[in-house]
Design a binder for these strands. Sequence first.
DNA 1: CACGTTCTGTACTTAGTAGTACATAACAAA
DNA 2: TTTGTTATGTACTACTAAGTACAGAACGTG
Lengths: 191, 191
Amino acid sequence: MARPRSFDPDDVLEIARQVFWQKGFQATSLDEITAASGVAKPSLYAAFGDKNALFLKVLDRYHDGILGWAERTLAQPVPAREAIRRWLTGFIPYCSGEKGQRGCLSINSATDGSLDQADLRKSIERYNRRLEELLRARLRADRAQFRKGFDPDVTAHTIMVVHAGLLALAHQRPDSKQVKAVIDQVMGLLA
Amino acid sequence: MARPRSFDPDDVLEIARQVFWQKGFQATSLDEITAASGVAKPSLYAAFGDKNALFLKVLDRYHDGILGWAERTLAQPVPAREAIRRWLTGFIPYCSGEKGQRGCLSINSATDGSLDQADLRKSIERYNRRLEELLRARLRADRAQFRKGFDPDVTAHTIMVVHAGLLALAHQRPDSKQVKAVIDQVMGLLA
DNA sequence: CACGTTCTGTACTTAGTAGTACATAACAAA
DNA sequence: TTTGTTATGTACTACTAAGTACAGAACGTG
């Protein structure tokens, strides 16, 4: 009953993610997203709202993707220690070499002082909380497999810190061997 | 023989640091620095060059400050383990609560995709390299105090990762107790 | 006191970008 | 085919912010 959309919003969010991830929120102009996606500005505004709203949608999508993968990985029928090792190891390609350069979209956004929009903060906090909950739940479930006095809550947070640190330092393109060595050493805390 | 400067460049760098740290490089306009410092733009340009050059000077100053403090702390006549514990603990006020909100200027800059200026990258890399060298040297020097098979190089890097992670997550204003718990747990790797 | 030099402040230019007005195109239904 | 509705694309506005021209102020020196 009206003219249909000529683009798939999900495709555009995917393209926008790449551009935002590469250049950062501030430095990315809507014209660049228009150029990359082929969708003109008025259509972007009609579909996603203003630049902040668009970025929020991109970030939420990004978070959902990582959370989904974390859920799947941590649900594997292996000891908690092994599941977490696999989860951390899975980040190595994103923490090292060429691909690591861009770091993590969520952390990049969290450390961007200009983004003190309440919505964005909330999205990031929610993401971190849920990620940590996944880790904590897994560690608690397999509590018996660890030494006496093992604290799953603190350990979950420590893993979050290591995870964030690896992705923060990823911008220097460290060698994947070095990242792996750090993960191996930190796994020593899970015993 | 000519009109003298009416401001102390060091004071201005200090003020600029505060503004840049709070709002980020991109989101800070020179007008804001002018307003905060009372120094007009032409004077800023004459004294420091353009916005990038000013920020580079601010960042170098920031790096020097932290490196100086790290050198002093790590040179204390205590076991390496204790020196590093003190060093990490010293960051707690900057990793938690209200003050933690702004995070670390260096990490904030490193994760800002728009700052792919070669100069800035170099400054940050140099800073991280020197910091890690300080840790590595200290761990190597007291190598005998650790267990057999202890690897000072990997451990130094792991500490860098934890340090970066704490400062990356600082934007969420975690409780200082939580930060301390993570540090305590990570210190378990130094044995 | 006059002079040359360097700094300062106002006001401007210029460029880039977020957001939008409006005419038009594409569809579904009648 | 006509009509109502929603999307599209061009072209525009409004604004912000980096960088600068220029006139005048503040010094040391002769």
